[in-house]
């Protein structure tokens, strides 16, 4: 072992591999979440929920190219999911609550891991680091995440609540609302930037989640990078096409 001088650690643990769970622990899930590895499971699982949502959301939005009737019909379908098993909009609200919960957990885990990591190296290297393996995406997860978060908030106020949509917002007229908002170049550019940030986030995130979850298989490991590039590209290309299509008048409100 590489230790040079050892000072007795104040919290030295019992020197046996079997006596682990002596102290009274927190409830099981909180106990797992209290460790860094546990928080990474949560980051990965909530990330997967996010990816699932973003993919379905993007595919749904492609209906924009089929015209207002198709698009608004799809929007109404979302409200009628599982009707008549559940009343109208109940399923939609359950999905929304799941997503909000996932995002809150994702952010809490990201925040507390960031604090932990700062504490693990309170004095930075005084000379310049020369990174070998870390890439732009992996080193900017916090920034790309924050951009995506700001975007989510704006997006909800814009197209769900309608407060930022401008004067013409009409609940239920999803198609018109989208076109109206993206017709403003500044908004369109914000949508484009945010989705590129999301793509960068997922370029590292999708690769990383396999490690975090311990999904390692020598036969498939080499595809993890490709999977990350594929998913990130799919989402960015799909989502960025909407503001561009509106700006280019390909998608427009018939007058």
């Amino acid at each position: 072992m590489a230790s040079t001088i050892s000072k007795p650690a104040p919290d030295r643990s019992p020197v046996t591999g079997t006596a682990t769970q002596k102290r009274k622990r927190k409830p099981f899930l909180l106990d797992i979440y209290s460790t860094a590895v546990g928080k990474k499971y949560v980051m990965a699982i909530t990330g997967i929920i996010g990816i699932g949502f973003v993919l379905v959301h993007m595919i749904g939005n492609l209906k924009m190219y089929l015209g207002p009737a198709e698009f608004d019909h799809y929007a109404e379908f979302l409200r009628e999911l599982l009707v008549p098993i559940l009343p109208r909009t109940v399923t939609l609200w359950l999905l929304r609550l799941t997503l909000i919960g996932a995002i809150l957990l994702h952010i809490h885990a990201a925040y507390s891991l960031t604090i932990l990591n700062r504490k693990a190296r309170p004095v930075k290297y005084q000379s310049e680091r020369d990174y070998v393996a870390a890439n732009f995406a992996s080193r900017t997860m916090r920034w790309s995440g924050i951009i995506v978060l700001l975007f989510i908030i704006w997006h909800l106020l814009d197209l769900t609540a309608g407060t930022l949509n401008g004067s013409g917002f009409v609940r239920g007229h999803a198609y018109e609302n989208v076109v109206n908002t993206l017709d403003r170049p500044a908004v369109a550019i914000f949508y484009i930037i945010a989705n590129i940030a999301l793509g960068i986030h997922l370029f590292h995130g999708v690769w990383s989640l396999f490690q975090s979850m311990g999904w390692s298989n020598p036969r498939f490991n080499k595809w993890r990078r490709e999977a990350a590039i594929g998913i990130a590209t799919l989402i960015v290309v799909g989502n960025v096409s909407f503001p561009i299509a509106v700006l280019a008048n390909i998608v427009k409100v018939k007058s």
Binding site: A36, V37, L116, N117, V132, N135, S212, G214, S216
Partner: peptide, 30 residues
């Protein structure tokens, strides 16, 4: 601190220990 899967450790390791062992640990911890 906590792992964010940058891969710098594997690149720095004088013995070339693989990141796959981290995945294995994450699996065994669960």
């Amino acid at each position: 601190g906590s792992c964010t899967n940058h891969g710098e450790c594997e690149a720095a390791c004088p013995k070339g220990i693989s990141l796959d062992f981290i995945a294995l640990m994450n699996q065994d911890y669960r």
